[in-house]
């Protein structure tokens, strides 16, 4: 990611222009049309009154931004998802790391365990939502979670339909963990395998206790680059949540006003009956800015880019 020198040879001649564009051109044209045009268009729409039109003529300046920032539901979803990230990201991190460490330690059936934990990566968020919503947490007595609760004398819980108490977070977070933990575990296993054994040997020679001490002073510091990657990726993913929320809580009447991800809200603003592209674009840019700020803040806290 850090290397910037594109061409390692200095021999640059006029004979390279045509081959270069033959190789790069097709991709670049598509990138301009399907990445740059939408970005610029989005920025433009965000400063116009663009309801039901994509070629608006009423310039409103920053009013769409002001509207979105004082729009209760939108701000509420940003706050909710900051809290969600605060909770889900460390949980994902700890579980992925714990699984990676354990898988890395066992010798027998290691590949089997790695495959099992990684397998949900092949599963779509829609399918996971289906199993969670209609089987495990379906809220009726025959549902799996309620059956298990029943064995211990617990009452039937309406997991998704009753916002108070907010049991739906158990459903949402467990689905996300199941889907994502294995993927981050693979990153951690790769990181663990890059740690030189000699470091551990030296620690034991110095009398370090196997266990927490070695983990704390050797494994964790050596995993730093991987840890930063996992935290950044899972943080960005948390703010852009859409699939499992839409499928777990949405229904034919729309989406309830709790646990609503910013992206789901913007989906209904921009593509709902009002087709309000102006406010939708402004909201999307606010969200992107928030993600950038939180990422930078997290990078600052973790000393991102610091060389060890």
């Amino acid at each position: 990611m850090r290397s910037t020198g594109t061409v390692s040879t200095r021999t640059r001649g006029p004979g390279t222009t045509i081959p270069f564009w033959a190789f790069v051109g097709p991709f670049l044209i598509g990138l301009v049309i399907f990445a740059y045009v939408p970005i610029v268009w989005s920025a433009a729409l965000s400063v116009f009154n663009a309801q039901n039109t994509v070629t608006p003529d009423e310039f409103v300046g920053l009013r769409n931004y002001a509207d979105m920032l004082t729009d209760g539901p939108f701000v509420h979803s940003l706050v909710t998802f900051s809290l969600f990230a605060l909770f889900a990201v460390p949980l994902t991190f700890v579980l992925a790391l714990a699984l990676a460490v354990m898988v890395n330690q066992v010798r027998f059936a290691r590949t089997f365990f790695r495959s099992v934990f990684f397998l949900p990566t092949a599963c779509s968020y829609v399918v996971a939502s289906l199993v969670w919503k209609l089987s495990i947490f379906n809220g009726v007595r025959f549902g799996l979670a309620n059956t298990v609760l029943g064995w211990f004398g617990g009452d039937t819980v309406a997991w998704l339909s009753n916002p108070n108490p907010p049991w739906y977070w158990v459903v949402l977070v467990s689905a996300r963990l199941w889907l994502q933990v294995g993927f981050y575990m693979i990153l951690f296993i790769a990181g663990l395998q890059r740690i030189p054994t000699s470091l551990y040997e030296a620690a034991y020679v110095d009398g370090a206790n196997p266990g927490w001490q070695v983990f704390r002073h050797i494994t964790l510091p050596q995993l730093r680059p991987t840890s930063i990657a996992v935290l950044l990726l899972s943080l960005i993913a948390a703010y852009q949540a859409f699939d499992e929320f839409y499928n777990l809580l949405g229904n034919s009447r729309g989406y309830p006003d709790f646990a609503r991800p910013p992206l789901v809200y913007l989906y209904y603003v921009a593509l709902g009956p009002n087709q309000d592209y102006g406010h939708g674009s402004a909201g999307a840019l606010i969200l992107a800015l928030l993600i950038a700020m939180v990422t930078l803040l997290q990078g600052r806290l973790l000393g991102f880019g610091r060389r060890d």
Partner: peptide, 24 residues
Amino acid sequence: KVFYAIVATLMIPSVVTFVPSFVL
């Protein structure tokens, strides 16, 4: 320059482009 123009798109989260991509 071309390389930087490509890398720059990696910094933009997909949420920003989904409304105008649909419009396009």
